[in-house]
Amino acid sequence: MKAQASTKPTIVAPQIFWGRRIAAAILLVIMGFAFKSMATNPRFEWDAVARYLFHPEILSGVVVTIELTALAMIIGVIGAVILALMRLSGNPVLVVMSTAYIWFFRGTPQLVQIIFWGFLGALYPDFVLGIPGTDVIFFTAPTSSVIGAFTAALLALGLNEAAYASEVVRAGILSVNFGQIEAAHSLGLTPSRAMRKIVLPQAMRVVIPPLGNAVIGMLKTTSLVSVIAGHDLLTNAQSIYNNTYEIIPLLLVASFWYLVMTTVLSVFQAWLERKFNKGVRRPPNLIIAMLKDRSLREQQSLAMQRSIAESNAASEVADVGR
């Protein structure tokens, strides 16, 4: 039997997603109206927003919020990895310690923890470094000079975050197939090397999205420290409107800066995810696929026509030869 090459291939028609197009149009209209109503409503006091957007106190609040968030997350993530490894170590002492820590820090209100650290000086006026049970003392100082307001805020945020993030890290570690660890061991990696080189990099894939959530949450949680220290973005905005009563515009200013920070973080997160998704098969990105679709289809159709032409030419040669 001879396969009959037709000159015109049956081409799969490009799919048109009417539902998507209609939904997008409706959404655009709604957004347009919302935008117009906000922009033209005098009670939003856009001129005041413009005045305060780059106000020094607002900008210094942004800096404090970024500092607190970054440092608290560093403490939190390092603590989280340590807690998760303790929990998974199989050593009963470490498991109990880690479980108790997580139980305590997740179980008590964060605000209470912040106040506790902030007023540690009232509970323990003197900070003493020595050997317990003996009279040997290396160092002593007033607690408030060792743990200042900023340090207290950091400890409160970081130690609390460690408890929450440790569960995220643990889930990430558990998501890595046990065969990976056995393969690493069989190649002569010690358990700690296998953890660093094989397990944690693969766990990152699972851990990054919820940790991204945590960082963005932390941006806003930092405003809780106003009870002991303050000077973060939201607290500074509030202290301005307590004097001027321009509440709405200042809240808009603060929201604008939170959105800017969140946007930067989201871009960074997307980059990290790409980095750690190397080698993982996953569904194609719909939007990019849509953009590529048209030019790809043209190429495909050209390629099909070319191959049909070739096979026709070949079969003609064969017919002549016969």
């Binding site: 065969g179 056995e182 069989s186 010690t190 080189k197 693969q202 080698g279 993982v280």
Partner: peptide, 30 residues
């Protein structure tokens, strides 16, 4: 123990290649 295991290779039913490394990195890592 890790040192002893370097002398004994193992090939698994499920391959267990490291998915986050290229083929070359899989081989050169250890």
């Amino acid at each position: 123990l890790a040192r002893q295991r370097t002398k004994i290779g193992m090939v698994f039913q499920g391959f267990n290649l490291f998915p986050h490394m290229t083929v070359l990195e899989n081989i050169t890592m250890a």
